[in-house]
Amino acid sequence: IRCIGVSNRDFVEGMSGGTWVDVVLEHGGCVTVMAQDKPTVDIELVTTTVSNMAEVRSYCYEASISDMASDSRCPTQGEAYLDKQSDTQYVCKRTLVDRGWGNGCGLFGKGSLVTCAKFTCSKKMTGKSIQPENLEYRIMLSVHGSQHSGMIVNDTGYETDENRAKVEVTPNSPRAEATLGGFGSLGLDCEPRTGLDFSDLYYLTMNNKHWLVHKEWFHDIPLPWHAGADTGTPHWNNKEALVEFKDAHAKRQTVVVLGSQEGAVHTALAGALEAEMDGAKGKLFSGHLKCRLKMDKLRLKGVSYSLCTAAFTFTKVPAETLHGTVTVEVQYAGTDGPCKIPVQMAVDMQTLTPVGRLITANPVITESTENSKMMLELDPPFGDSYIVIGVGDKKITHHWHRSGSTIGKAFEATVRGAKRMAVLGDTAWDFGSVGGVFNSLGKGIHQIFGAAFKSLFGGMSWFSQILIGTLLVWLGLNTKNGSISLTCLALGGVMIFLSTAVSA
């Protein structure tokens, strides 16, 4: 259960009878995928790494000078000259100064003066180019299975845990398959586009800190620079940016070097996208990844198990997540596992009318040892309800109150669905055939309105939902006002479609 501690969480529900669903994975976010007769899966884009970055340009932001020398000439005696002028490691300046009897010249006039100092770069920052084909995306998957609280967001041991898996995709191999043991396998067909235009970005490294910066900004930095990788004795261009020549006297000129420019660069980098280094690879934390999940090989585990009949206890007080759902960790005293956990939410304890829904599909106890633990997640209705676990006299209950409203949740879900469709863009549509167009249209309606429909009408039977949709269509056909007619027709059509397409 990876997503319960992530604030940016998206719930995606598969269409009834569908074998695939489109998701948008982004750094700092987590996606929970639910479908009829399929286990619930949490998917998170953990890291995006980039390798084989080529150094484009380096800037010196802290330097020192040494070996200063000057040469001067009297008027009419030609130009002052130093051998160091031809050495690229030196920074030199030529000027004219007033000369006369007082400073060793027989004539009054302008004399030539040249001053040089050896330039040494102490600290530099480097910009590297990123090729999209060198990106690698690491995705962690977790099935809502027989897990306890100690396994949440624990990325170790996934090789031997059938509840978890790690997959890596690249532009050259965008397809992967996550093996989930008894739950089958989940196929991923990803489109490795981060949403960032790397043709316009460089990877900047300064003092063990890293950013993504725009090329134009990078090339306009007014500091000494050299092109390409460091060859040991780089040729620094624009050395004068960190060196200041003071007022010249008759035979000498003082040279000083400016202080470190790291603070000024940090100020200019305010708002830039931060990154990290992992050995020789860069780690990015921006952008998104679009994936199509193929769920035809994914299956529920323990459908044929019998119900657990022994007593359950709450190991922890049920807690609310950031998303309005409830996490419950229970301990089973029996030894008759594997068995299914009898769990439901009810409005009252007399009729036990089921409300809400299970995020953890078909929760089971897989071990036959005593005191096995299991964590599950529920989506309670707004208002008061009861969490009921167990059967008969051994069942345990917990009162729950959820604040908020169904309308607010439906609106929030619609906005999130619209954002998801905007990110998917043209990849969500198939114009290759008439059937493809209608299929894409259905998927689009489901992406945007599916979660809201589930919130508003999830407790009704599909037949009642179709009746309401048919009534809206009838009202649309018999209303003389054009805008009201079109609105009723659209709402009725969407409702009829979703009542037959969205899983219960």
Rank of each mutant, 00 (worst) to 15 (best):
G187A: 09
T335E: 14
A227N: 03
S461R: 13
T95M: 11
C291W: 03
G157S: 14
C308F: 11
T487D: 11
L475Q: 11
F449P: 04
E329R: 02
F11S: 10
I448P: 01
G436T: 03
E26Q: 12
K110S: 04
A413Q: 15
G492V: 00
T315L: 11
C190S: 11
T406H: 05
R357A: 02
T360M: 09
G476W: 08
P380H: 04
N439H: 13
P171E: 06
T427S: 14
W400G: 10
H219E: 01
L141S: 02
T470R: 00
G5L: 00
T19P: 01
V31H: 04
V437C: 09
K281S: 14
E44R: 02
C339H: 07
D426I: 02
V355Y: 14
N207G: 14
N439K: 15
V494A: 14
E79V: 08
T194Y: 14
I139C: 05
R292K: 02
D426P: 12
I468M: 15
Q350S: 02
S286R: 15
A176T: 06
D296Y: 01
G442V: 14
Q85F: 02
S403T: 14
T254E: 06
C74I: 06
T321R: 06
W101T: 02
L477F: 14
T231G: 12
K246Q: 14
G18M: 06
H249P: 04
H323F: 10
G450T: 08
K297D: 04
L498A: 02
Q447A: 14
H148G: 05
K395P: 05
S64R: 15
G228K: 08
D87C: 06
K209Q: 11
C121E: 07
K239L: 02
N371Y: 02
G78Q: 04
Y305R: 00
K215S: 05
E168A: 02
S455G: 13
I65P: 03
D37A: 15
T19D: 06
E262Y: 09
S185W: 02
T179I: 13
Y81G: 14
K297F: 03
P318V: 01
D42F: 08
K340F: 05
W429S: 01
G104M: 11
G111D: 07
A268H: 12
S16H: 09
L471W: 11
A311E: 06
V50E: 04
W400M: 11
V46L: 03
V326F: 04
K480S: 13
V21N: 02
I496N: 12
G181C: 04
M206W: 06
C3M: 09
T32K: 04
K290T: 12
V213I: 12
E79R: 06
D220Y: 08
T470W: 00
K38H: 07
P342S: 12
N238F: 07
C121K: 05
I139R: 02
L180D: 09
I139L: 15
N481L: 02
K340W: 09
K215I: 08
K110F: 06
V243P: 00
K283H: 12
G425R: 09
S129D: 09
D155E: 11
L180E: 07
N52Q: 15
H288N: 02
K454Y: 09
G182S: 15
W236F: 11
A227Q: 09
I65E: 01
K419F: 11
G127D: 05
A361P: 09
T315M: 15
R9I: 08
T325E: 11
T325R: 03
P171I: 05
S403E: 03
C190H: 08
T126G: 14
G157H: 09
D220G: 12
V169A: 09
D22Y: 12
T32R: 01
A504Y: 13
T48Q: 06
M460Y: 13
L477S: 08
W462N: 06
E79M: 12
E13N: 08
T406C: 03
E329A: 12
F312E: 08
G417D: 09
E177M: 11
G100R: 04
P222W: 11
S433F: 04
L212H: 07
Y158A: 11
F183Y: 11
P224I: 08
H214T: 04
G450K: 12
H323N: 05
T95L: 08
C105S: 05
W211H: 08
V31P: 00
C339I: 05
A241H: 13
C105T: 03
R292L: 00
V265W: 13
Y386K: 08
L307S: 14
H398Q: 15
N207F: 02
D197T: 04
P354L: 00
C488R: 00
R99V: 06
A310Y: 14
D42T: 02
L258H: 09
D200L: 00
G436V: 01
L322P: 12
S304D: 01
E191T: 04
H144E: 10
E26F: 07
P132V: 00
I43G: 02
D384M: 13
E62L: 01
E370A: 08
G109E: 06
N237A: 00
Q350A: 07
R57T: 04
P381Q: 02
G417P: 04
W236C: 06
A80H: 08
G102Q: 04
Y59C: 10
R138D: 03
S173W: 11
A227S: 15
K340Y: 07
T95Q: 12
G458P: 11
M460H: 12
S199K: 01
V50R: 00
A69S: 10
V328C: 03
Y158D: 10
L424C: 09
S58P: 00
G476C: 02
A410R: 01
I496H: 11
G390F: 06
L188F: 13
V265P: 12
K283V: 04
A270P: 12
G104C: 04
P354Q: 14
A178W: 09
R357S: 06
H219P: 00
C190M: 11
K215D: 05
V317T: 04
I396Y: 00
R416L: 03
T309I: 13
I43L: 15
L378F: 13
Q465Y: 04
T205A: 13
R292M: 03
G334M: 09
I130T: 08
G442C: 03
L489P: 01
W400H: 12
E412S: 14
I139Q: 04
L358D: 06
M345Y: 04
F438S: 07
G337P: 13
